[in-house]
């Protein structure tokens, strides 16, 4: 039987004296698209960052691809995280950002592939990211996801700032990743969640 892509068991996380996650458990199987729903401040982004191994919980365990999250090394390259807003180097162009990101992940790509991915998401080449709108940054993040081919995609409010065309492309990318792996997305938009997710996980004050 295939191991779950994500297994979060009894996780507690606090910042200062404030507990953000309290005894939270979540399992995501391969092929699933799980939407984390809930108002601001309930810990959706923190949970995504815990799953991404970027922050360590005070208590509880996180396993990814069947292995303890802290023991991941090569498998970390299978995780794709799209933050809100997505992070890129302002002084580099979109295609340069894509090339650099993939080269540092140990999977270098040619300029042509970067440009193809940008064309697919409707971005013009040669423009510094500093001149991008929020929606364009989201589209560039989609292009990076397409090129990276993650087995676990973590998305933080991915639909915000995207126009209808961008949302359709996002839904296609999510479906594409879910064919080979799993997707966890944090969102306020129940309509979007209903459209793309196979399961919703309602969060309330850290649980």
């Amino acid at each position: 039987m295939e191991e779950p892509t994500v297994e979060v068991q009894g996780v507690w996380k606090r910042f200062g004296r404030q507990w953000v996650l309290r005894d939270l458990s979540l399992t995501v199987e391969p092929g699933e698209v799980v939407a984390l729903l809930g108002p601001n401040g309930v810990g959706k982004t923190t949970l995504l960052r815990v799953i991404a191994t970027l922050i360590r919980p005070q208590r509880g365990t996180v396993r990814l691809f069947g292995k303890p999250a802290r023991a991941l090394e090569a498998e970390r390259g299978w995780i794709g995280l799209v933050a809100n807003p997505p992070a890129f180097y302002r002084h580099l162009s979109g295609e340069e950002n894509l090339e650099q990101s993939l080269a540092l992940a140990g999977r270098p790509i040619s300029r042509e592939r970067a440009l193809e991915a940008m064309e697919r998401v409707g971005l013009p080449p040669g423009r510094a990211v500093a001149a991008y709108s929020s929606g364009m940054k989201k589209r560039l993040a989609l292009a990076r996801t397409l090129l990276g081919g993650p087995r676990l995609l973590l998305l933080d409010e991915p639909e915000t700032a995207l126009d209808s065309g961008g949302r359709e492309e996002l839904a296609r990318v999510i479906a594409e990743v879910a064919r080979e792996g799993a997707v966890v997305l944090a969102t306020h938009d129940r309509g979007f969640a209903a459209e793309v997710a196979t399961r919703s996980f309602a969060m309330e004050a850290g649980t």
Binding site: A52, T53, L54, R76, L81, P85, A87, R90, L104
Partner: peptide, 15 residues
């Protein structure tokens, strides 16, 4: 920090 890209570096595979 300025570009908020530290997470991307930390998510790269390997030690």
């Amino acid at each position: 920090v300025e570009n908020e890209t530290l997470d991307d570096l930390l998510l790269t595979p390997g030690s």
